[in-house]
């Protein structure tokens, strides 16, 4: 090889451009989110709901489990019971505050567990492909043969009620869809050249998974998981509605809706309150995950 001009290395002309502020991936996501007022509002709403639930013991005016036969089914706007009372004379405001704790817990904890378990299986299936993929994904397919509500009712119905069983049920129900998303995302990343470049540098599979695959798979999986929070809340309240959640005196939105159902002729508005809480919370989570998905849809 000859005709290469001697002298300094050729440099890229575009370097002359003024240095721009370097902003990482999450920085640019936040930059988009900053101007999405609907999402910001819903984020605020969720923060309020979470705070109300966390501080329920200090915020609720009364003991949520103390019933009083004399004060049954008081209307909304009552002097002593701001949001009325239920069919056993328990203060609705206190019960709604306490009930939010259970509902939020049921919305978030199963999603976290399912993301950890389903995500791991999905990444393994997507990265290794072949027989490993077949075993994992065909097993998931069997779970996809059940509509999610049906699967939840089936498992919870067999295990019986209780908060622990409800958590197990929801986790199992949420694993297959997360696993599928993680598998697709991983298979996509797996086919990119930088993974081959990492293999060519002699990196172990574990190192490639943690350093290269995980950071690229994480955001699609997290965005998807965030959409499941509201589904998890609705499923949980549905199970409680069927008597497959917390055991009675404990407050839970789904269970409250179920027991107040008998009182719709007397206090229809009070009876509608727990469902309204579920609806608002679930809409807020849905809109936030929508906004998050849009903000994260960055080319990088």
């Amino acid at each position: 090889m000859t005709d290469i001009p001697a002298g300094s290395f050729p440099t890229d002309k575009t370097q002359a451009a003024p240095a721009t502020k370097v902003r990482g991936y999450w920085g640019s996501v936040w930059n988009r989110l900053r101007y999405d007022y609907v999402t910001l509002f819903c984020l605020g709403l969720i923060t309020v709901i979470v705070l109300l639930a966390v501080f329920a013991p200090w915020l609720s005016p009364m003991d949520p489990e103390r019933s009083s036969m004399a004060n049954r089914l008081r209307p909304i706007g009552h002097a002593k019971f701001t949001l009325g009372t239920d069919e056993q004379g328990r203060d609705m405001l206190s019960r709604l505050l306490w009930g939010g704790r259970v509902s939020l817990l049921m919305g978030i904890v199963p999603v976290i567990f399912a993301t950890l378990i389903g995500g791991t299986f999905g990444i393994i299936a997507g990265y290794y492909g072949g027989k490993v993929n077949m075993v994992i994904m065909r097993t998931m397919d069997v779970f996809f043969a059940f509509p999610s509500v049906l699967l939840a009712v089936a498992i919870a119905g067999s295990l019986g009620g209780g908060i622990g069983n409800q958590m197990i049920t929801l986790t199992v129900v949420l694993i297959p869809p997360i696993c599928r998303v993680a598998e697709t995302a991983t298979a996509q990343v797996r086919s990119l050249d930088f993974v081959d470049a990492a293999r060519a540098s002699g990196a172990s599979t574990y190192s490639i998974l943690t350093n290269h695959v995980l950071i690229n798979v994480l955001s699609p999986v997290l965005v998807y998981s965030s959409t499941l929070v509201s589904i998890s809340i609705i499923l949980a309240s549905g199970l409680s509605f069927l008597g497959l959640g917390v055991s009675p005196p404990t407050a839970d939105w789904g269970l409250m809706l179920s027991t107040l159902r008998q009182s719709i002729y007397v206090q229809p508005l009070v009876a509608a309150l727990p469902g309204l809480c579920i609806l608002v919370t679930s809409i807020a989570f849905n809109l936030v995950s929508d906004g998050l998905r849009q903000a994260m849809d960055v080319k990088a």
């Binding site: 990482g24 991936y25 990119l192 050249d193 930088f194 470049a197 990492a198 540098s201 002699g202 990196a203 172990s204 190192s207 350093n211 290269h212 950071i215 690229n216 990088a300």
Partner: peptide, 21 residues
């Protein structure tokens, strides 16, 4: 486009190989 990890600063992409070794 696909040969560099989009979530890593390029310095980290270059340093990855030596670190592995």
């Amino acid at each position: 486009y696909s040969s560099l990890n989009p979530r890593l600063p390029i310095e980290a992409s270059i340093a990855y190989g030596p670190k592995v070794q």
